[in-house]
């Protein structure tokens, strides 16, 4: 049975003239890594708010259609319980920091404290997560005196620390340097290998294409495409709807316009190198 199921979901924010989501239907399975892409204002964050139950429980507005998580209708779900099952990393890293804690250490511990995790375990977990996210040197700093990227890493760490089965992650690398970005993807990959379900919104399509199992393309409130990464990205017409394509695909497209045809469209760097090497022999 599908883990999350949407059927003809239409949602309008309070006072908004137009719906932010239109007639969306899809099914998500447990244990998969979904990459959500698409142009800004298309509805990606709204989709996340829905998966986490913030719509309809926090944002009022008007919700039509049916949606279930683990068989339970979303309108009847207890969001407090849902919050212990689905970790949600907000889009804006500047608002995720609580502002009430004096050190990064306490900030990362906050979520676990709220879940009632024993103290010893919290300390252990904070240290482990800090190593994983490579922010050990920030643990004693004041969360309000961090650089933009450092904040984003702390926000990520504090949600990952809660070790939920499902993570909804909205643009976690927007403020990160290229190597920091790659390590976030490596961590997400690790989570996936622990059978976690991941829904990741991200513009950095080169990395999404490399790591995600499936893509969900959202635009103008609709699901424009959903499926296997190669299959979705073989349709260049999505470019006209504001979808970014991997540099590997764009390079092969540019080469084919110069008369070098390739049998398949590469989406990752290694595929691209492989294909070009064959030509060089």
């Amino acid at each position: 049975m599908a883990f999350i199921k949407l059927k003809n979901i239409t949602y309008t924010y309070p006072l908004a003239k137009e719906p932010a989501l239109r007639n969306m239907s899809c099914e998500l399975e447990r244990g998969k890594f979904y990459g959500v892409i698409g142009e800004n204002a298309g509805g990606k964050t709204t989709f996340c708010n829905l998966l986490r139950g913030l719509i309809p429980h926090f944002y009022r507005g008007e919700l039509e259609g049916e949606m279930t998580i683990d068989g339970q209708e979303i309108r009847n779900i207890d969001v407090d319980i849902l919050s212990t099952q689905i970790g949600y990393i907000f889009q804006n890293p500047f608002t995720q920091i609580s502002g009430v804690k004096k050190t990064v250490f306490e900030e990362i511990a906050l979520g676990m404290e709220n879940l009632g995790v024993p103290k010893e375990e919290i300390i252990q977990q904070v240290i482990e997560i800090a190593e994983l996210v490579k922010i050990e040197d920030l643990l004693q700093k004041d969360p309000n005196q961090l650089s933009g990227g450092q904040r984003q890493k702390v926000a990520f760490a504090s949600i990952i620390a809660m070790d939920t089965d499902v993570f909804v992650i909205d643009e976690p690398t927007s403020q990160l340097d290229p190597q920091g970005t790659e390590s976030i993807f490596e961590i997400i990959d690790k989570l996936k290998k622990q059978a976690k379900t991941i829904i990741l919104v991200e513009h950095k399509i080169d990395l999404v294409a490399e790591y995600a199992d499936e893509l969900i393309v959202i635009g103008q409130g609709e699901i424009l495409a959903k499926g296997d990464v190669h299959q979705v990205l073989s349709d260049f017409s999505l470019q006209t709807r504001g979808v970014m394509f991997p540099q590997a695909a764009l390079l092969s497209k540019a080469l084919s316009e110069k008369g070098f045809d390739f049998p398949n469209i590469p989406v990752t760097k290694s595929e691209c190198i492989q294909m070009l090497k064959e030509r060089m022999r």
Partner: peptide
């Protein structure tokens, strides 16, 4: 040292 990277086209070129 600065934790930056080449663009993908740049990296592919180096590899080739």
């Amino acid at each position: 040292e600065s934790k930056i990277k080449r663009t993908l086209a740049g990296e592919v070129a180096v590899e080739l």
